[in-house]
């Protein structure tokens, strides 16, 4: 599989007021190239949640969007730490380690990773104190 479109975006730690902008841009890009609306919605949910995770939990990182020649879409979220101590817990609906500041802004429902896993076709996460990498893939389909 070859990449036919690549975009990358930087996410700053604790930049709450800009959170969601990258997801909007990713969605706009994919809309322009004709990705199915239902696929777009799944990608928007996943991208938003993962972007927010980088803002509220990480020390900052990058978002990479790749459109492949078979029409599938891959999103990769890479941060520079501090890592997720217990991945199993982090994937449990309702479990959250968000700060009070984040919770006061309506984040920290503990639904981020569970939402992402539910809407994506491929989900792979690795984490260490040096950083977390989340790789998602989506097959474009009208269902």
């Amino acid at each position: 599989m070859a990449v036919i479109l690549h975009e990358e975006f930087k996410v700053e730690r604790n930049d709450y007021s800009n959170a969601g902008k990258i997801s909007s841009r990713v969605k706009d890009f994919l809309k322009q190239i004709g990705v199915n609306p239902k696929t777009l919605r799944r990608i928007a949910v996943a991208c938003y949640e993962a972007e927010i995770n980088l803002v509220i939990h990480s020390d900052g990182g990058m978002v990479y969007m790749d459109v492949m020649d078979d029409g599938s879409i891959q999103l990769t979220f890479e941060d520079v730490g501090p890592g997720i101590p217990d991945l199993e817990k982090a994937l449990t609906p309702g479990f959250s380690t968000a700060s009070n500041e984040a919770r006061n802004l309506g984040f920290g429902a503990g639904m981020g990773l569970p939402n992402i896993k539910r809407v994506s076709d491929g989900f792979d996460i690795t984490s260490s104190p040096e950083g977390t990498t989340l790789k998602l893939s989506f097959t474009d389909r009208n269902e």
């Binding site: 949910v45 949640e49 802004l105």
Partner: peptide
Amino acid sequence: LSWVMGNGEPGQAWITVQVHMNIVAVAKL
């Protein structure tokens, strides 16, 4: 916000008392 993001449907009116910049991103997405 994650609850709304995970359960809302396109076209709905969203009632909230959350007043923060991010509600716009959620509504748009």
